[in-house]
């Protein structure tokens, strides 16, 4: 575990100005993926049911469990919706016969394993769940280690 954390920090330190905030939710892809950065719009299209093809490969999104802090933070930033709005979105799409919601994975561990196993998989985890088998994707060119990283878990009030 210590090795993983060291490797992650080393990897992030290549482009980071500083260590990422622990509340950051990072988008991950398989190790060695050609995808290094995605825009918010691309992420919205991918996680709202529309196909996202990158380098001739259709990206397969995986969500965190509904109600999890990562899911809430990611949906609020990418889709611009609260959890209730997200739920109504997928109900509406199901009624209309459109593509279903991305599969939800039970845990960050499963997420990193799945993403690591499938080259076209894309998902998100808290920054402290990153493993060496996945790569972190910059959002709109901003890495978690950079200031102004947009996807953060709100602190409990």
């Amino acid at each position: 575990m210590a090795f993983v954390m060291i490797a992650m920090i080393v990897a992030l330190s290549r482009d980071a100005d500083s260590s990422p905030p622990p509340r950051a939710v990072v988008v991950v892809v398989a190790k060695g993926s050609k995808i290094k950065s995605l825009t918010r719009a691309e992420l919205r299209r991918c996680f709202s049911g529309d196909a996202l093809v990158v380098h001739h490969a259709r990206m397969i999104p995986f969500n965190s469990p509904p109600g999890s802090a990562e899911r809430i933070a990611f949906d609020r930033f990418v889709l611009g919706m609260s959890p209730d709005q997200v739920g109504r979105l997928w109900v509406d799409r199901k009624i209309r016969g459109q593509s279903p919601a991305p599969r939800s994975l039970p845990s960050a561990l499963h997420t990193t394993k799945i993403v690591a196993k499938f080259p076209s998989a894309i998902s998100y985890v808290r920054v402290d769940h990153i493993t060496a088998d996945v790569d972190v994707v910059a959002i709109d060119g901003v890495l978690p280690t950079s200031s102004g990283y947009p996807i953060l878990i709100e602190e409990a009030r």
């Binding site: 994975l105 499963h110 394993k113 196993k117």
Partner: peptide
């Protein structure tokens, strides 16, 4: 699929 993809016997 997820359980096999994640190689998780417990799952």
């Amino acid at each position: 699929d997820v359980a096999l993809g994640a190689d998780d016997p417990s799952l």
